[in-house]
Design a protein around this nucleic acid. Structure first.
Length: 680
DNA sequence: GTTAGTTCTGTTTTT
DNA sequence: CAGAACTAAC
């Protein structure tokens, strides 16, 4: 690909964004405005102009986005940079890679590992039981959320022991303990990856200088989703040079509840004086009526930068509204509508999507689709990490990689059960604390602790086993083998199959186990290929990839059938036909988010994100009654529906005097599907 | 130390 | 209603 020709294909605003290379640049990129194209081309353009590839850094939010961007930059550069590559990664993995070199300056060891949410919760559960809370209602989930908020507000974990126990005070009390325990276990959480990097830059000017020199051009995608810590890191890295280009859309900021700060993008021009601002308002995705709907909804938000999406594709069909009797009817109506459109226009199922507020709402749609023989894929839901068999096995790998990680040791030591119970572990934990030794060490020396021989023995042999595998995993290229041997030795598959009642369930779990073991093999082979075997692939590396990039078996492949997804997971996707469902008060806006202005505005942005996923047809549905927690209750239509102007809307009644031909079409659609199923 | 009943609590989740 | 987490009895 030739950069010059590619450049000419851009619209003027896009071209300005790509060719403005020096100084702070804010690109306000509306939905569907070719944002990714701009950002990838800008990376290629910088290198084309002579910037060293390794001096260009582009951060994204998902691994998927990073991979895609890498590929596209690669093809734009046409393999012109053989040796050095621009750094294109997620914010978190960028920080992880920095910390891997520098973390010792902050009091951690080099072989630290990353805790996922489940492990954070588990740690907090231990801390909560230590502190002996008698009142109920202190859920570790809530404490974790508060601690995360404290971290994101730059609160230092100072000991501020308060006596009254409301959730807030409790979290403040637990925060320093949590942080200190994490450090002693030599583990970090996702927040720490960012926070420790910031601390490094603040406390060690030499380190900051090094990375400032290295990264001369900073680019950030989805800037509206960055938090305050990320802003601080960027500000420090940008330094005096201030070659920072951020791309984002304040109207699509939907992660405020996770600490994202809308102010980062709203105040960018103030944060970086002299900013050049470029607006990408030309939309290449949707027909006019859809954009009218989107613009009319979002203009009700007070906190935003003025923008207005345009298209030159014509109005397209009107936005359709449908209100069903109940959730089941709503789902069935959508299923019927999909069958009909598919029959009339022969669209593949992959071009339809159903978008709703919460994962728990997917069920009626799944049932209706199954009943109507419509293939579908539910995006999101239970993640790979929530699978017990994976967490169990991963906990073995974690202690092996990081022997200080006593929590993973605890988990591993009872999965499968091997006669080490809570009494023994409590004693050993205390023993470890008294002597200031690691829990693994305490397990090994269990005989010295105050426990009976028949409890000490299994603890001791467990510790010895871990040490044995620690050696085996160090052998180059033998990790896959070692892992398999470990799974055999602990009879992991037997343990799993006994855990599940149905044969089917058990088989599925065993398959997961098999894949997981295999994924370490793959990792090893891949690492050998990539590094030419000069650097040995490490277990730590595998665990990092697992923590930051999730399911090893998961692919970026296109989902099969109709896509069922939440607003959040729909971001960045597009579909010719979109159904936004369950548009009722208390669902959208959600009851718990609806509180003051801020909350409502984020809910509105969710709706905006949903609307702008549609290319051609948009259906907005709701139900008069909805079954929640087993009880059926009447509902009120979402207030956001009133914000869409009537002249672009078509209301559909269920028994719409669908011209009699309609029944016939339905029947035909049915037979067409039958034929298809019979396989022709 | 393990298991079977019982109670509780229901958003969103790129990392 | 359904899944998880906790408790009380083997």
């Amino acid at each position: 690909m030739n950069i010059k020709t590619e450049l000419n294909r851009l619209n003027p605003a896009q071209r300005e964004a790509v060719t403005t290379t020096e100084g702070p640049l804010l690109v306000l990129a509306g939905a569907g405005s070719g944002k990714t194209r701009v950002i990838t081309m800008r990376v290629a353009y910088l290198i084309h102009l002579g910037a060293l590839p390794e001096s260009v850094m582009a951060v994204t939010f998902t691994n998927k986005a990073a991979r895609e961007m890498k590929e596209r930059v690669q093809s734009l550069l046409d393999g012109r940079t053989n040796q050095n590559q621009p750094v294109i990664s997620t914010f978190h993995s960028l920080c992880l890679n920095i910390l891997k070199r520098e973390i010792e300056a902050l009091g951690y060891r080099r072989n630290f590992t990353v805790y996922d949410t489940g492990e954070q919760i588990s740690l907090l559960r231990h801390l909560l039981s230590d502190i002996r809370i008698f009142e109920k209602g202190f859920r570790p989930e809530d404490v974790l959320e508060k601690i995360s908020r404290l971290k994101n507000d730059f609160k230092s974990p100072l000991k501020s022991e308060k006596d009254e126990f409301d959730a807030e005070a409790l979290s403040e009390t637990l925060f320093p303990r949590y942080q200190e325990t994490m450090r002693s276990l030599n583990v970090v959480d996702f927040d720490d990856l960012l926070l420790l990097t910031l601390r490094l830059f603040r406390e060690h000017p030499g380190a900051l200088e090094k990375y400032r020199k290295r990264f001369r051009y900073l680019m950030v995608d989805e800037y509206q989703d960055t938090n305050k810590i990320q802003y601080e890191i960027l500000r420090l890295l940008a330094g005096e040079r201030k070659n920072i280009c951020v791309v984002g859309d304040d109207d699509q900021s939907i992660y405020g509840w996770r600490g994202a700060s809308l102010h980062n993008i709203l105040d960018f021009e103030r944060h970086f004086p002299g900013t050049r601002t470029v607006r990408l308002e030309q939309n290449y995705r949707s027909f006019g009526n859809i954009l009218v709907a989107a613009n009319s909804v979002i203009k009700n938000n007070a906190k935003r930068m003025e923008k207005c999406l345009r298209t030159d594709r014509g109005d397209g069909p009107k936005v359709c509204l449908f209100r069903a009797e109940d959730g089941e009817e709503e789902a069935q109506w959508i299923a019927d509508r999909i069958s009909r459109i598919k029959y009339e226009r022969n669209l593949p199922y992959e071009e339809f999507a159903v978008i709703y507020r919460a994962n728990t709402l997917s069920k009626p749609f799944e049932e209706a689709f199954r009943g109507s023989r419509i293939p579908y894929t539910v995006i999101g839901g239970t993640s790979y990490f929530d699978r017990k068999e994976i967490k169990d096995l991963a906990s073995y790998l974690k202690v092996i990689a990081n022997p200080l990680d006593g929590l993973s040791l605890l988990r591993a030591s009872s999965a499968p059960k091997r006669g080490i119970g809570s009494k023994t572990t409590n004693r050993l934990a205390e023993f470890a604390r008294e002597r200031s030794i690691s829990l693994l060490e305490a397990f090994k020396r269990a005989r010295e602790a105050d426990i009976g021989e028949k409890s000490a023995q299994p603890a001791r042999s467990f510790a010895l086993m871990i040490e044995k595998y620690r050696e085996l995993f160090k052998k180059r290229g033998e990790m896959g083998k070692a892992f398999r041997a470990l799974a055999e030795e602990i009879r992991f598959k037997d343990y799993i199959s006994e855990l599940y009642k149905s044969q089917e369930m058990a088989l599925k779990r065993i398959e997961n186990v098999e894949n997981f073991i295999q994924s370490l093999h793959h990792f090893e082979e891949r690492a050998f290929q990539e590094t030419g075997a000069e650097k040995k692939p490490s277990l730590q590396g595998f665990l990092e990839e697992l923590a930051l990039d999730g399911n090893p078996g998961e692919t970026d492949e296109k989902p099969f059938g109709v896509v069922l997804t939440t607003f959040h997971s729909a971001k960045g996707l597009e579909f010719p036909v979109v159904f936004i469902a369950c548009l009722e008060e208390d669902i959208l806006p959600h009851k718990k988010s609806a509180l003051p202005g801020e909350g409502i505005e984020e809910e509105r942005r969710l709706f905006y994100v949903g609307i702008t996923r549609a290319m051609r047809e948009l259906y907005l549905t709701s139900a008069q009654h909805r079954t929640k927690y087993g009880k059926k209750a009447p509902t009120t239509p979402s207030r956001f529906l009133d914000e869409i102007p009537d002249n672009i809307v078509r209301r559909i009644q269920n028994l719409e005097p669908e011209d009699p031909a309609q029944e016939e079409i339905k029947a035909k659609a049915f037979f067409a599907k039958m034929r298809e199923m019979l396989g022709d």
